Computed example of a mutant assay.
Amino acid sequence: MIESLRADPVIRQNYQIWFFSYASGYPYPASAAFLRTQLDLINARYPDHKRIVVIGHSMGGMISRTLMTDSGMKLWYATYEKPPAETPFAEESTRQLMAKALIFEHRPEISRVIFASPSHRGADMATNFFGRLGSKIIGGPRNLLMGDTSALDLARPGSSGSQLKKMPNSIDFLDPDNRFVRNLAELPLAPGIPYHTIIGDRGKGGNKDRTPPVSSDGIVPYWSSHLDGAQSELIIPSGHWSNQHPRGIAEVNRILRLHLEED
């Protein structure tokens, strides 16, 4: 996709493409918090930069969703009973990390978002045998909390009703019953930020709700990727890597050109 976009003189003249890299095993609320910190640094270094068009694929789409959202205290109280200042974390750094991951505002520098195969509401594959096996292999990102388990000990029980024994990883955050995933999906998007969705169905079609056969890109079903209010939604005969499909690339090109006209 990037090489195709850069080959277009209109795109090349008007856009500078940047990347945000993150550990795919990390829980994506933490990765989103890291991205917001990086955006703060960009704004400080380049205060006059143009507003940003975000393209988020798969989990990147979930991270991008947080950039369009004002969480208030909803996500915090879905995880902890008391406010941050009254929650007795063992380390202050843990309190700061959890607050940044669970309490945030939409980013005013974001002007448009393009979602490609996002999993806004999770995916059932995270709870089947292979998903559980993958989660076990990945394990919990221990270095994220530097050995401080108080964030887990103080958290409300997980979707299974049991206390968390490890920091949830990326696959755990694909569980449709994950409280963060479920509560974030219920939060409204900030007004004034247009967004678009590109979804794959492998050329098989299928039902858009949970009625079999379900439309899916092989990993994420349509009911998870769809967002009401999108300026456009394109379903292409692609697997999960819709960002590599020619029609997916062409759609991103179209949207970027549209943005130049409307911005």
Rank of each mutant, 00 (worst) to 15 (best):
L145S: 03
K165E: 15
L164M: 15
R202M: 11
D177L: 13
R182I: 12
F180T: 01
G200M: 03
N207L: 10
I219H: 06
N169A: 06
R142D: 04
N183A: 05
N183R: 03
T197I: 06
G218E: 05
M146P: 06
L174V: 05
P212E: 13
I137P: 02
N169V: 03
L187T: 13
F173R: 13
D201N: 08
K165N: 15
I137C: 07
I198H: 02
T149S: 08
T197P: 10
I219F: 04
I137V: 07
S160G: 12
L164R: 13
A190D: 09
S170A: 09
L174I: 04
N178S: 01
E186I: 14
K204T: 05
L145P: 03
K204I: 00
G200Y: 05
N178K: 04
T149M: 05
S216C: 00
S150T: 10
L154H: 05
S159D: 09
L189F: 14
R142A: 02
Y195I: 11
R179S: 13
G218R: 08
D172A: 05
N207E: 10
T197A: 10
S216Y: 04
P191D: 01
S150K: 09
L184I: 15
V214K: 02
L187Y: 09
G206R: 01
D201W: 00
G192A: 03
R210Y: 11
D172H: 08
Y195W: 15
I199L: 14
A155T: 12
N169T: 06
I198M: 10
T211Y: 08
L154D: 06
I219V: 04
K208Q: 13
L145M: 08
L184A: 12
S170E: 09
D172P: 06
K204L: 01
D201Q: 03
L174D: 05
D175H: 08
D148L: 07
P176G: 11
I199Q: 10
R179M: 15
S150N: 11
D177Y: 13
D175V: 06
N178M: 09
